[in-house]
Design a protein around this nucleic acid. Structure first.
Lengths: 192, 192, 192, 192
DNA sequence: CATGAATGAGGGTTCATTCAT
DNA sequence: CATGAATGAACCCTCATTCAT
């Protein structure tokens, strides 16, 4: 795919993260991408129009990680743990970007595209849950689609607390993951 | 009392919500507050420095609503429902502001203050849970402090999905609330 | 005389010297004077209108020093040395202010007052030279009035070089003074 | 060559002279230079940072005039007269700028550069004096370097008196020049 | 396609000045 | 007389966007 466009997106991710939306200049992005000021406008119409492309890259990244790191041959318990790990890691790297996307774009034309971009993520997680239900791990009365969204929101918000607000240590992050897992299991699993 | 400062904060909330951070001008804020441009700078050093004050106001608002609308004489089930209602309503009104606070201020000096501002919220919810535990509604092995944070994150993220991303209808909002409640109960309650 | 007015003038001298005209704010001056912002305008109509008052203070200061430090009982040689000392010292303290006065006020209404303010200085120096001529120290063909102005200009510019541009050490200042004296003597004295 | 920078400097000279530092707006300068507001900031960081560039231009101008108008084939007496003429003329045109340079920049970072800018001027005058000494016009005991600085200061301050303070007529200017020359000759020449 | 110098509208911020207390 | 909070016009400077090369 187009090399320059990629460079812009990745430079934008870095700069947005470092400086925040408000203080990010197109000139910072092009400097990071190693291209000329004008070249930016051959690929994007404005600073904000990079956002959906960033979101796409991040969801792709998430899916890759899930497919790579969640081992289907293991017990569901273990898989769930791996899912939490991935979400925490991706959130660590990108959550501030997600926040920006809808903070910067609230009441803009780009928010529409959001759901479409997130779709593969929801689908993958849906399939993951279905498979577990088939194995009779999950509650019979659990409806998958809504639960998927709740679970994703739950894990993400826990990760946010760790990485954004409280800026916790590695050990505390591990503890937080265990708490989320515990909480989720009670919410999702069959009672023994 | 500090009448002008109050006016600025409330005008800022309105304008940020209407236009987003990026497009909000200080001149809009002062127009809304009915004061002169220069007066703004007697109270705040910049546009962004209003953010923590806004956050404080919103947490206060949340606490007021909780105290007003969560009826301690009712069953815990009902109270939990009321809590979810309040969080959904406040999120509906202010979540875009919350998003802005950390989107606009990622990597800034203000993020530090965040936890301190949220503290009363966590404390209230902690007390609420303790009371329920005393009534033997909640699981014995539930540790309250971490659960409080998870629950708040869970409800907020559900509310976000309803009001920010998916922009769902009233009926769908009601359904989402029930799903969250269901999810929470399984996660928190004693098994029968 | 009016205490507050005095305070303003002296604070203004300090601040102008420290920050330069451009960056001096009325608020700095009143802070230095220990009075309220509005009080300034009871005594002066604007920032620039303090200038003539400052100039007056400085010429007064100069005259005081001359009368105090130039000893009429000594040889003219010695007296000339003392004159140079005074000019150097006053220049050290105030020359940047003098510069400002006409830099800031070039093409302004205040420049007119300048000559009048400087007048006592020229007169004193004129009397000083006349007395020396009577003692047959100075050249017979020396016309006093123009020489006085040249001498003042010469000493001042030498002092400027020392204190403004080259920022020389104490030793170098002493040397410069000797050079000026030598130069002046050749220009003014009778040939032996 | 660096056409825009040149244009800015020359426009700045004009505007500073017309309005004084305080009242000069960047927008005036760019209007005079026929460029856009933003272009100014590609070449200079602020209004004040043009000052050293202006000083450089003026010293260049001075040197050009000296080389053009001081005729080496004439007697030293005549040459000295021509030097005074040049200094008076340049001072007439630019002294208010010089005043501004250090008035506006007192206590600033730019004052340091001053000596370096003046250097060619001092050097030229030094060479001029050496040549005269070789011809046995000047006193044997005259040390050239310090005298050069004194002479330049003397002529400049005389010119200032004529053009800045006293705003004298053409005839008076001529008379002042003769006085300076007379003064200088006594200070510099061998006794007959 | 790529460049980067030039643009200029626009907004943040300052600060001299006022005036009710 | 003295105050200092409030004012708002004025100005600096930024930075997204363009366009000739």
């Amino acid at each position: 795919m187009d090399n320059k466009k990629e460079k812009i997106i990745h430079a934008a991710i870095d700069v947005f993260q470092e400086k925040g939306i408000e203080k990010t200049k197109v000139s910072d992005i092009v400097k990071g991408a190693g291209i000329a000021q004008g070249t930016f406008y051959l690929y994007f119409s404005s600073k904000l129009s990079v956002m959906p492309a960033i979101a796409e890259v991040m969801v792709e990244k998430m899916m890759e990680e899930m497919k790579e790191r969640v081992n289907e041959t293991r017990l569901f318990d273990k898989q769930l743990e791996q899912v939490v790990d991935v979400v925490f890691d991706i959130t660590k790297s990108y959550r501030s970007i997600f926040a920006m996307v809808y903070a910067g774009l609230a009441s803009s034309e780009y928010l529409q595209q959001w759901e479409k971009i997130y779709q593969p993520y929801y689908e993958w997680m849906g399939a993951f849950f279905k498979q577990a239900k088939a194995k009779e791990v999950l509650r019979d009365d659990l409806s998958i689609e809504p639960s998927v969204k709740l679970v994703i929101g739950l894990i993400e918000s826990a990760a946010e607390q760790v990485y954004l607000y409280d800026q916790l240590s590695k050990e505390e992050a591990v503890k937080k993951k265990q708490e989320v897992l515990e909480f989720m299991k009670h919410a999702l699993y069959k009672k023994q």
